[in-house]
């Protein structure tokens, strides 16, 4: 078993007060719901939001997971087999605008974001949480079900997955709201 001392349990939707308590290096786990988005979903979401359209789901206070799951279609729907994080920095040019226009409060990924993006996230009241890259099966085990999949035409890896999770983690607070950035230590 993985022993993690004092993991803070988060249940999105999150507000600023909840994430302000967290400091770089803290361990966190998430229950209830996380929503995946990567390259193409970010781009499409921004295109909609810029032209004043609404997204098909409300992302205020949400935890966004940079992930393109490997899943298998079953009779009852989808079974997520492996779902580790993808490189967050690939989305850096879209990150701040995405967070600002959606009201997302936590990004989950791997490898961190650029320094300028980290300060933008702070200003917008959004933390960055790191999950172990490559730990796809460990992640999938915390996924208890697929609520829905949106924008499936982007492909299953690029679509938005709304996932029901229990104790998703261990996540490490890598960028906090107090100027902390684990990648600069």
């Amino acid at each position: 078993m993985i022993f993690v001392p004092h993991a803070t349990k988060l249940r999105p939707p999150l507000d600023e007060r909840q994430i302000k308590r967290l400091r770089v290096g803290d361990f966190v786990s998430i229950s209830e719901r996380i929503i995946t988005a990567r390259d193409k979903a970010y781009a499409r979401a921004l295109e909609s939001l810029r032209s004043g359209k609404r997204l098909p789901l409300d992302l205020r206070g949400a935890a966004i997971y940079h992930c393109g799951p490997l899943a298998m279609k079953t009779r009852g729907g989808w079974q997520v087999l492996s779902a580790g994080p993808t490189t967050s920095a690939r989305l850096d040019s879209m990150q701040a605008e995405f967070v600002e226009l959606t009201g997302v409060r936590a990004l989950i990924g791997k490898g961190g974001v650029g320094e300028d993006v980290a300060s933008e996230l702070r200003r917008l009241g959004c933390i960055y949480l790191a999950f172990t890259g490559g730990a796809g099966v460990l992640a999938a085990r915390a996924i208890k079900g697929v609520e829905k999949m949106l924008w499936q035409d982007l492909g299953t890896a690029e679509a938005i997955w709304v996932l029901r999770v229990r104790d998703f983690g261990p996540l490490v607070v890598a960028v906090d709201l107090h100027g902390g950035n684990i990648y600069l230590r």
């Binding site: 393109g68 490997l70 087999l81 492996s82 580790g84 890259g133 490559g134 730990a135 099966v137 890896a157």
Partner: peptide, 8 residues
């Protein structure tokens, strides 16, 4: 018996 990482 499933892939270690989703990026196969």
């Amino acid at each position: 018996g499933v892939p270690i990482c989703q990026d196969t």
